[in-house]
């Protein structure tokens, strides 16, 4: 549905986006991650046809964005960063204006406006002037604008920025629900959002794609992914540690927390070992040693660690030792 090939954008001598390629199919939600200034917004502006790429191609459906811009733009709904709006209009006048530009007329138009107002919970501010709205409402008004023509493709630049936790939750479930039948690309720097809503994710840094995969795949690249964490009540933590170290498949044991009664250990498996077999071995050991254990789990890995590892390679060691 959306195919981006070798997209490049330079502003003067500054390279903002440097050879980004990816493809998103119907029913997929793609999360766009990256530190501020990594080129997320610039990439989105090129996909939506606002900026012309220095090189590379954007295909939306059957259309090339720079050869058939009107047809391509009809398929897209776009929420720009910071939710720009015409301050002097009322919410409904603004939505009607957008519906006009989207080619909706008459009954179709008023139905579309009503539906967008309902979906985005804007009934209470419908006739209010936009400049009087709070940030959450402004954001939702701009979101309503992007879905008014029921587009096949939704491109959302930081859709949950500035929303309170409840609103964030609403927007995320909206994205997930719509993602079932549309193509959605959204950018964020909130990692839990990616886990909550995305079917795949791309991490972009300094204009390049540095990692790509489903959230689970990405998490597995975390340095701690696959390690087994165990909490044992024992008077001599060092003894426990050395016993755990004795297991063949363990490459290293860290003491995560040590306080009087209970201690928390982290066993990192050797490269070829699966974490399942390691946790089995540890639970057997707990049985034979008769330790009192109240927690045993396998670490899934955390996206924020992956993110840090990839986008800040210099400080990787510093954060890992934390």
């Amino acid at each position: 549905m959306i195919k981006v090939e070798n997209l490049r954008k330079t502003f003067g001598s500054k390279i903002a986006v440097d050879g980004v390629s990816f493809e998103v199919k119907k029913g997929e939600v793609l999360g766009f991650l990256g530190p501020n200034g990594a080129g997320k917004s610039t990439t989105m502006r090129m996909i939506t046809g606002f900026l012309q790429p220095t090189a590379g191609k954007v295909r939306v459906g059957d259309y090339n964005m720079w050869e058939n811009p009107l047809q391509a733009k009809r398929l897209i709904g776009y929420l720009p960063e910071n939710a720009p709006l015409y301050e002097d209009m009322t919410v409904s006048a603004f939505l009607e204006f957008v519906a006009d530009l989207r080619g909706l007329r008459g009954a179709e138009k008023s139905k579309a406006v009503d539906k967008a107002v309902d979906t985005c919970f804007l009934q209470s501010v419908r006739h209010q002037s936009i400049e009087t709205l709070s940030k959450g409402y402004r954001h939702r008004t701009c979101f309503a604008q992007s879905i008014i023509h029921d587009p096949e493709v939704l491109i959302l630049d930081e859709p949950t920025d500035g929303l309170d936790p409840n609103q964030k939750h609403e927007v995320r479930s909206l994205i997930r629900r719509m993602g079932e039948e549309k193509v959605i690309i959204f950018s964020t720097h909130i990692l839990e959002e990616v886990e909550a809503a995305c079917s795949s994710a791309i991490i972009i840094d300094r204009g390049r794609i540095v990692a790509k995969g489903t959230p689970d795949e990405l998490k597995k690249t975390s340095p701690r992914a696959g390690s087994v964490v165990v909490r044992v009540h024992h008077s001599e933590p060092d003894a426990v540690k050395s016993r755990l170290q004795g297991i063949n498949d363990v490459s290293e044991v860290e003491v995560v927390e040590k306080n009087g009664a209970a201690s928390v250990f982290r066993a990192i498996p050797k490269a070829q070992t699966s974490s399942d077999s390691l946790s089995l071995q540890i639970s057997e050991m707990i049985g034979t040693e008769n330790w009192k254990c109240d927690e045993l789990h396998t670490e899934e890995g955390r996206l924020d660690e992956v993110f840090r590892k990839i986008t800040m390679p210099d400080t990787e060691t510093a954060s890992a030792s934390k």
């Binding site: 606002f50 811009p69 047809q71 720009p84």
Partner: peptide, 13 residues
């Protein structure tokens, strides 16, 4: 206001 971005991502010339 940044609405230029909104306007030029609509199907208008």
């Amino acid at each position: 206001l940044g609405t230029l971005e909104l306007l030029f991502t609509m199907p208008v010339q």
